[in-house]
């Protein structure tokens, strides 16, 4: 088991290093940050001065070596856009808001998707099932940007039930969380439905019914517990998707999380912040997958010997 964990951990580190190389290269391909930082009035001497100040006068491989050397210590350099802030401090400052929103979106997804998925399986072929399928279809096909604006106009502008945007109490989180979680509702619901259909066909369910258990207990206690395993393992992936998917939602609702941060950083060619956000997100993804791998290996010994 220890060998398995060590091997997987090394693979994860390799993945993060490759990611650092990709993001470092890609942000530099997009253009010169000085063209965003400097005004039209800037002369050649201003370009030289600022280039030197930010170390952009050094060869790219030297810049990468400096970046990597500092990054392993958790230092991604100072932001070029948010002067006086280190890139990592900005990420840590904004990450709680993203986690909060992603967590709430996940909660909403589960609260909606699980019962609807169960009902859809139990009432297969009925109107309920059709309604659930429509929800799934809408969830998968509605772009978050559009959905967010529609929700904002209905519930904030016309009905005045929620604030349009920004961050504050729980009421500020509801519309962005629904927007963010809506796609996942469809995914979890479909997974729950198919998993539930499998369980409903199994022998122990038939036995429970023969033994005279109420239908409520058979479905919500025995079937749900068994059927929920598949969606639960899917949560690790969903959590990652929700965090990275927050870019659009945070922009629409002016939610000051890492999604909005990275949008602003990309616009401003703030390489340091873009690199920090991407690597932190990648790290979270890789770490989550590593934990899932370890968990699988723990539960199923065959995996660790493959």
């Amino acid at each position: 088991m220890q060998r398995f964990i060590a091997k997987r951990a090394l693979q994860s580190l390799l993945a993060i290093w490759v990611m650092s190389l990709i993001v470092f290269t890609l942000v530099r391909v997009t253009g010169n940050p000085l063209d965003v930082m400097l005004p039209l009035e800037a002369g050649p001497e201003d370009y030289e001065r600022v280039r030197k100040h930010w170390g952009l006068d050094k060869p790219v491989y030297v810049q990468y070596a400096i970046f990597l050397g500092k990054a392993v210590q958790g230092d991604f350099g100072n932001s070029w856009k948010w002067h006086g802030h280190s890139a990592m401090s900005l990420v840590w400052e904004r990450l709680p808001a993203t986690l909060q929103l992603a967590g709430f979106a996940l909660l909403i997804s589960v609260v909606i998707a699980l019962p609807v998925g169960v009902l859809s399986a139990v009432m297969k072929g009925t109107v309920w099932d059709s309604v659930a399928k429509v929800i799934a279809l809408l969830g998968q096909s509605l772009p978050a940007f559009w959905l967010g604006i529609v929700l904002m106009w209905i519930f904030a502008v016309n009905l005045g039930w929620f604030p349009t945007s920004g961050k504050g109490g729980l009421q500020y989180m509801i519309l962005p969380a629904i927007t963010l979680g809506w796609f996942q509702v469809a995914a979890i619901m479909r997974l729950m439905r198919s998993s539930m259909l499998d369980v409903l066909d199994s022998e122990f369910v038939k036995l429970s019914r023969i033994k005279g258990l109420s239908e409520w207990k058979v479905i919500w206690k025995h079937c749900l517990r068994n059927a929920a395993i598949a969606p639960l393992t899917f949560f690790a992936i969903i959590a990652g998707v929700l965090m990275t998917g927050s870019v659009v939602t945070e922009s629409v609702f002016s939610w000051p999380g890492t999604g909005l941060l990275v949008v602003d950083a990309v616009r401003a060619r703030d390489f340091q912040v873009v690199q920090a956000v991407v690597i932190v997100f990648a790290g979270i993804f890789i770490l989550t997958n590593l934990l899932v791998d370890i968990l699988y290996a723990y539960l199923d010994p065959r995996i660790r010997y493959q």
């Binding site: 005004p39 009035e41 800037a42 002369g43 600022v50 100040h53």
Partner: peptide, 8 residues
Amino acid sequence: EATATLTG
């Protein structure tokens, strides 16, 4: 680090 419009 000055980059204001009229820095020059």
